Simulated assay, not measured.
Amino acid sequence: MSDWDTTTVIGRNTRGGQSGGGGGARQGPTAYERAKAVGAITENDRKVAAGTNKAHSGVDHAHLAKLDRENEVAPPAKVAPSVGKAIAQSRQEKGLTQKDLGTKINEKPQVIAEYESGKAIPNPAILAKLERALGVKLRGKDIGAPLGGPKKS
């Protein structure tokens, strides 16, 4: 038989595996199959969160966050109601909406609403921007008093 008489097949399942058999036969059970055989995992354990953006499917993050909050000594302080009233009053006196004020200080209108309602956790940088935009004191003593200019010596 010459080289011209042999047939060469190119494509799938043409090479033999390590066992010498043809057709790409598997060598044995996979790790998943072995774990399933000994009862280490059940059918439902495989790829539960496949294709989702959930890192840990079996962990309840809301529950963990609640546990973390229970361990805190005190919840973070909120803006004092007097600060919220001072912001709302001076904003209305200047004829600004929450959206206008937010745009003026580069914050979302939602942030202004949270400060006015007293739900926000105070941020000194935001309070300073609000003080400059509204011209009233929002920190320290005399909340709501007009903001003085630079001190004269």
Rank of each mutant, 00 (worst) to 15 (best):
A145N: 11
K85P: 10
P76A: 00
K152E: 11
S153I: 15
G17K: 03
D3G: 00
H61Q: 13
D68L: 05
T42I: 07
T52C: 03
A80F: 08
G51P: 07
K94V: 00
G140S: 02
N123H: 11
A25H: 12
I143Q: 08
G23Y: 11
I41M: 01
G149K: 11
P122L: 05
V79A: 06
K47S: 12
A80Y: 06
A77Y: 14
V48R: 15
T7F: 02
G95A: 01
A113N: 07
Q92D: 14
G22L: 14
V9Q: 06
A65L: 10
N13T: 14
D142C: 10
R69E: 02
G95V: 05
V38Q: 00
D45Y: 03
Y115N: 07
G21E: 15
P81L: 04
T14F: 03
R15H: 12
G84R: 08
R132I: 06
D3N: 09
T42E: 03
E107M: 13
G135E: 02
E131D: 06
N106D: 14
V83H: 04
P29N: 09
A86R: 03
L127W: 04
I105Q: 07
K119R: 03
L147S: 03
G24R: 15
E116H: 06
R26F: 01
R12S: 09
G140T: 08
E116M: 00
T30N: 06
R69D: 03
T7A: 06
L134K: 02
D60V: 07
Q92S: 15
N53I: 12
A120M: 01
A113M: 05
N53R: 13
G39A: 01
R132D: 11
G11N: 05
Q98P: 12
E43G: 08
E93K: 07
K141H: 12
Y32Q: 13
K104L: 05
D45F: 00
K99W: 06
S82I: 15
K78M: 11
A77N: 15
T6H: 07
D45N: 04
G135Y: 00
A86C: 04
G16Q: 09
A88F: 00
P81I: 02
A55I: 13
A86I: 07
A128G: 12
L138H: 03
P122I: 00
V79H: 04
